[in-house]
Amino acid sequence: MAEIIEKLQHSLSFSIVWYALIVGLLISLCSSLLGVTLVLKRFSFIGDGLSHVAFGAMAVASVVGLTNNMFIVLPVTVIAAVLLLRTGQNTKIKGDAAIAMISVGTLAVGYMLMNLFPTSSNISGDVCGTLFGSTLILSLTPFDVWLCIGMSAVVLVIFVLFYNKIFSVTFDESFSKATGINSDGYNLLIAIITALIIVLAMNLVGSLLISALIIFPALSAMRLFKSFRSVIICSAVISVVCAAAGMLISLVASTPVGSTIVSADIVVFLVFWLISAIMGKTKT
């Protein structure tokens, strides 16, 4: 135990570790807030689709040689979110088919570009780091941290200001339209916020594990709570705690950050599922 504490203290003496913790907790908080809405609206897979789009955009940024790939990844992912929403409403191409087309296509193109125009001798390592976020979170600069803080603040402010509208659109879109709420506009807002979170989360868990960061805390909270507000609060607590635990465990055990955080989310989900099952049997 003393050795573990000493290792943690040594790791926490580096500024890059604190950068990772700050960014990780903010991303987890934002993901959990939006995750509840995405799960209830059956938009869960949009996170997976956009994460693949972000991977393709990051590959393009690497080929072009941009020092900060955010200038390409962010606008491309936001545009993809809008297109997914619009295409999903087309009767000829259903939402799940549109997500599958865009996600698989951009993932394939991104990997092909990284092989055709390699930026380093370790292509496999670059791809693995981008997909699973192995060490990217420990290479953040102060600019990245402040950018994450600013974007997270935007997400939180939007969610708080439009909480009632998001609640209404989430549960009954037809009724919302009947009462004069611009449901299409708020769906578009949700899609854009999702794109922002996807871009932020790529450095934390990688593009393939982002959906887990969004979905698992929401599903865990839904095992025990029924009201929208309670589920959101519980989901936020679970997400932040799992992110902190996952990052600290990864520092001690030298495991991949993204995979460790998602593993913590899975453990919590199983615990909540077990508790809900026991409570259900007790009531009956």
Rank of each mutant, 00 (worst) to 15 (best):
I193R: 06
I193S: 08
I193C: 14
I193L: 15
T194S: 13
T194C: 15
T194R: 12
A195M: 12
A195P: 01
L196E: 15
I197L: 10
I197K: 04
I197M: 04
I198G: 00
I198A: 06
V199L: 01
L200D: 07
L200K: 00
L200V: 11
A201W: 12
M202A: 05
M202F: 07
M202T: 14
M202P: 11
M202N: 06
N203S: 11
N203H: 12
N203C: 11
N203L: 11
L204W: 04
L204T: 06
L204S: 01
L204H: 03
L204Q: 06
L204N: 03
V205D: 03
V205R: 05
V205C: 10
V205P: 15
V205N: 01
G206L: 09
G206K: 08
G206V: 08
S207M: 11
S207N: 08
S207Q: 10
L208R: 10
I210E: 08
I210C: 10
I210Y: 14
S211W: 15
S211D: 13
L213S: 04
L213P: 12
I214F: 12
I214T: 09
I214D: 12
I214H: 13
I215K: 07
I215H: 02
I215F: 03
I215L: 06
F216W: 11
F216L: 14
F216R: 12
F216M: 14
P217E: 10
P217D: 09
P217K: 13
L219N: 14
L219W: 05
L219H: 06
L219Y: 01
S220E: 04
S220G: 07
A221V: 07
A221N: 08
M222K: 02
R223Y: 03
R223P: 03
R223V: 01
R223D: 07
R223W: 00
L224P: 15
L224W: 07
L224N: 08
L224D: 10
L224H: 02
K226S: 09
K226P: 04
K226H: 13
K226N: 11
K226L: 05
F228K: 00
F228D: 03
F228G: 07
F228Y: 00
F228I: 03
R229Q: 11
S230N: 08
S230L: 12
S230Y: 00
V231G: 02
I232G: 04
I232H: 05
I233H: 08
I233V: 15
C234M: 10
C234W: 06
C234F: 10
C234E: 07
S235W: 05
S235C: 09
S235T: 03
A236I: 07
A236T: 09
V237L: 09
V237Y: 05
I238F: 06
I238G: 06
S239N: 09
S239E: 05
V240Q: 11
V240F: 07
V241H: 02
V241M: 04
C242K: 06
C242H: 06
C242A: 03
A243T: 11
A243M: 08
A243Y: 10
A243R: 05
A244S: 08
G246S: 01
G246A: 00
G246H: 02
I249Q: 00
I249W: 07
I249P: 03
I249M: 10
I249T: 13
S250G: 04
S250V: 02
S250R: 01
L251R: 00
L251P: 08
L251F: 04
V252F: 05
A253T: 07
A253D: 11
S254I: 14
S254P: 00
S254C: 07
